[in-house]
Design a protein around this nucleic acid. Sequence first.
DNA 1: CTGGATCCAACCAGATACTG
DNA 2: CAGTATCTGGTTGGATCCAG
Lengths: 139, 139
Amino acid sequence: MSSAQNAIERFSRYQRQLGGDQSAHCAVRDVLDRIGDKWSMLMIMELATRSQRFSELHRAIPDISKRMLTQTLRDLERDGLITRHVFPTRPPTVEYRLAPLGQSLLDPMAALIDWADRRYSDIHAARVRFDGAPGDVPR
Amino acid sequence: MSSAQNAIERFSRYQRQLGGDQSAHCAVRDVLDRIGDKWSMLMIMELATRSQRFSELHRAIPDISKRMLTQTLRDLERDGLITRHVFPTRPPTVEYRLAPLGQSLLDPMAALIDWADRRYSDIHAARVRFDGAPGDVPR
DNA sequence: CTGGATCCAACCAGATACTG
DNA sequence: CAGTATCTGGTTGGATCCAG
């Protein structure tokens, strides 16, 4: 509760600082744009389990295209969350590992996943209620 | 650390359960799709500070279009994270409030925001390093 | 095996105008 | 005030082919 309060107050300060100019850099938004995309958190969780190669990751998460896999890994590497290790073998071997910065993200992410896990039934129930209510369409 | 480990293990189980069929419902993904979008967390933080009306929210977050504001609020309401209260005045008054379910999200979100806040400089440094390294383009 | 490059379709989201 | 409706450009992301 107190930690949430702190965050809220800090956020309020952000908002006031930014004033009307929201185009200014906002750490929270910047970070959210990264970890909020479709695949980043999945990647991080996957690499938290163990370091993996490109094709291993692709097998672990089949419904991502090579294109997006490459792009997501690049972005995560760019942000220093993961590292890329190339071994000059034939054929080439590339292993991706969670960097310390990525490790430090695990705890906050775990809190979120925990929440998702515990509250999902509530969310689902709310959706059913919402979708059923407006027209009450039995069809 | 231990909480992260728990989450990782739970996640691993998810992955194994799903097997190849990733289209199956995944609570984590489902939730991330919601809170991961561009505006949802911003809305929640804003409503955590205090309940607000439509136009107040629009003023607080100017760079969202009315269209997206409406849509985001609808989605959050649908998921039971916020509630919508209409007062039959002229002109109409609509107030949005954080629901208990939304309140319960504040702590995990705070953890994430805290992380973003503390690690942003590291991320930024990593980006500069990454962008500078490849071509070393001084131009 | 690990990607890069290109083409293209689908969806997203902003701008604008309109309504109760 | 609190939205809805429509149009449209821009981005996203899948499919495919190619390369080291």
